[in-house]
Design a protein around this nucleic acid. Structure first.
Lengths: 393, 393
DNA sequence: GTACTTTTGTCAGGTTGGTTAACATAAGTA
DNA sequence: TACTTATGTTAACCAACCTGACAAAAGTAC
């Protein structure tokens, strides 16, 4: 049966007041009062509570309309800290951020191609501790969030790694980090995290958003009604290993003809190997330099991903598509992708569609993870729990 | 910005009590009290209100545990009436139903291939009035719901008809029916309505459900978190006019190579024309009789739809797929579809997947529309509004 | 400066909507 | 008949919130 998931909090609880403030940006007390439907007396009490929790702050004033200026209030999303990590097939990056996604410090690690959790997890724990100390924000740490390639078993807090990373299959991630840092640990797929980054950076639009990430591998994320659609087994949007009609290219997943076998960063590296390319960074550099073979390969990759994305657009009918990842943002790739989608998707789905590159660059996943933490820590339920635990006046 | 859409009703309001009862089936007063979190005194008052509104009723007793038996309570979903209509490319069917989808009377009309709203709408209004009178349920009518092929502009209550029904493009549907029957009118795409039918018939599972309808045309619906995903322009799931690689078959939509041009009921009728087939009913009969050419054609159609559905399954990662429509439920079609999905969709998405034919037959759309009406009329917001308007004891 | 306006905070009394506790009745079992 | 459980009702009570009055802060207009 469908279980109602709304928090059992009343629509005038402190948590709900904060939610209104979060959704509708800086507001004056009067505006807030109208939207929440509380009397001034009670609202003052609510705000006092939220202020003591450090969750709201002043944000300038409105123009005077003949008397005292009204003070604007907003959610304090810079006071608390999250430790976030982006784990990839060949890298691991840690960052200390606030709940808005501002990066205070980051720490990049290259990883061997076939790295194992036994080496990487302790390294991350250690690096995380040092990074927190270095920024002096350890005392405001409220959560940790990790993005990983492949699927996640959210129930158990365990990875369900892709075939390309067999050592990582079933690795418990939530537990070790929760134990060391003593805060909740959120896990998210890498493409989902990037998609959420764009979603939050766009001001949490109330429309369906599809995010595409083309880096070493290929993945997508879908945000519907403000939430990532993960599907029944957490593999929704895993388009990287869909078949391309007519292709027999061997894929690193073991099968043949996958999109990722022909259009991922890994595939481009292989395709351009004879021209001296060894890494994805090499691919990006050559495309930026305008080398014909590299540009053509990127465009062909964009066309292939575009074919699959056109189907996705037809099925999901999103308002926005945001394309990220090292390969995804390359202009020849993006242009070919856009043209292919426009040629193949359902006409009606195209009318309201907006395809743009992801705006966040290197920090995209961090913004997404920070937003995820924010949604968790600033949710009405969490805030009401905090408020209830607060000592009286 | 994302606007919070929860009703501003408190979590202990009459509407919410009803919602709990709706979600968790028949409950005793004590169980209900625990789940809602109200004292017995107040719960009695709530239930009195709901009983006076005719929204709850007794449903037998629990076994005695040594004393008086506890009385079970359930939502009364048979007391109110909805007029529902399923409008197709060549038929229009009206039915009088209760909010559970029980059909009290139905009225089938064949329509000319190129029918126009100018003839059909007045006919439906007239037939609806007579049907309501005949069943004697006109006095409990609480809403009307219509399913139509093509998309719907829910804002304006207007159809955005498919290219195959150009006369119906932009037809106002909500207004004429609302004026004649004096109740709210809900509109839904036909594939969405059928999908919702299976969703409600399955007891509103808390999992993603994809419905596929293959009748005259091809359409799909997606239920996520208990709601139909309609997409930005209402065309989500319109897979009928996606391209098949290699096909150049002319489609009735004007383009070439669409799935619907090769795999819809209309396409099968054309393909089997030389064997004497004239209608979809002919196709169904010949497949049921086991005629080789018809069975092969149905299987090939299933394979083609399966190819597209495999992509959809990979992208959405649903728990359930339900296949309906006159062609969709044919065993050779369904078997070929199932095999194709299993061969092509992402392995992880297949593990938790359950593909079955729609269980509802002719009345599928009616059950879906009835559920849609129920969700609307029994929602906390609607119920609380009714309760507030009720005269004091 | 003074007069006026708007914003914000606080106190006090009243209303509402719920609570608990006690009692009464109904409807079972042993 | 005695005991148990379910249900309804009454009355006293209580917490949360509201309204209204008052006051101070912080502006503008003159």
């Amino acid at each position: 049966m469908l279980v109602t998931k709304e928090t059992p909090t009343s629509p005038t609880s402190p948590g709900h007041v904060l939610a209104v403030l979060r959704a509708e940006g800086p507001l004056t007390r009067l505006e807030l009062q109208e939207r929440v439907g509380l009397s001034r007396v009670t609202l003052v009490e609510r705000l006092d509570l939220l202020r003591r929790l450090g969750l709201v702050r002043q944000a300038g004033h409105r123009e005077s309309s003949g008397g005292r200026r009204a003070e604007m209030l907003e959610v304090n999303d810079t006071g608390r800290t999250a430790l976030v990590a982006d784990l990839g097939q060949s890298h691991a990056t840690l960052a200390v951020v606030d709940l808005r996604g501002t990066v205070f410090a980051r720490d990049d690690h290259r990883l061997a191609v076939r790295h194992s959790p036994q080496e990487v997890v302790p390294m991350l724990l250690d690096a995380g501790k040092r990074l927190l100390e270095r920024t002096g924000r350890a005392d405001t740490l409220c959560a940790m969030a990790l993005s990983v390639p492949g699927q996640i078993d959210h129930e158990r807090g365990v990875t369900v790694a892709p075939p390309t990373m067999p050592d990582w299959n079933g690795t418990p991630l939530r537990r070790p980090f929760a134990e060391v840092f003593g805060v909740p640990v959120l896990l998210e797929n890498d493409a989902n995290a990037l998609t959420l980054g764009d979603y939050y950076a766009m001001g949490r639009p109330d429309a369906t958003l599809v995010g595409v990430k083309v880096g070493t591998g290929i993945g997508t994320g879908v945000v519907i009604s403000g939430r990532i659609h993960r599907g029944e087994s957490g593999s929704a949007g895993e388009i990287g290993h869909m078949r391309i009609e007519g292709s027999e290219q061997q894929c690193s997943c073991g099968r043949r003809g996958c999109v990722a076998a022909s259009a991922s960063g890994q595939a481009l590296t292989r395709i351009l190997r004879s021209t001296g390319v060894r890494t994805i960074a090499d691919v990006v550099r050559r495309v930026d330099e305008g080398r014909g073979d590299a540009v053509r390969a990127a465009a062909e990759a964009g066309r292939l991903v575009g074919t699959v994305l056109a189907t996705m657009v037809t099925i999901i009918n999103p308002r926005y598509v945001r394309v990220g990842g090292a390969i995804g943002v390359l202009p020849p790739f993006l242009e070919a992708l856009r043209r292919t989608v426009e040629a193949n998707a359902h006409a009606s789905a195209l009318r309201s569609l907006d395809i743009e590159p992801s705006q966040l660059g290197e920090n995209g996943a961090f913004v997404g993870l920070a937003g995820l933490v924010a949604d968790e820590m600033l949710s009405p339920a969490t805030v009401d729990a905090l408020a209830a635990a607060l000592p009286q006046s």
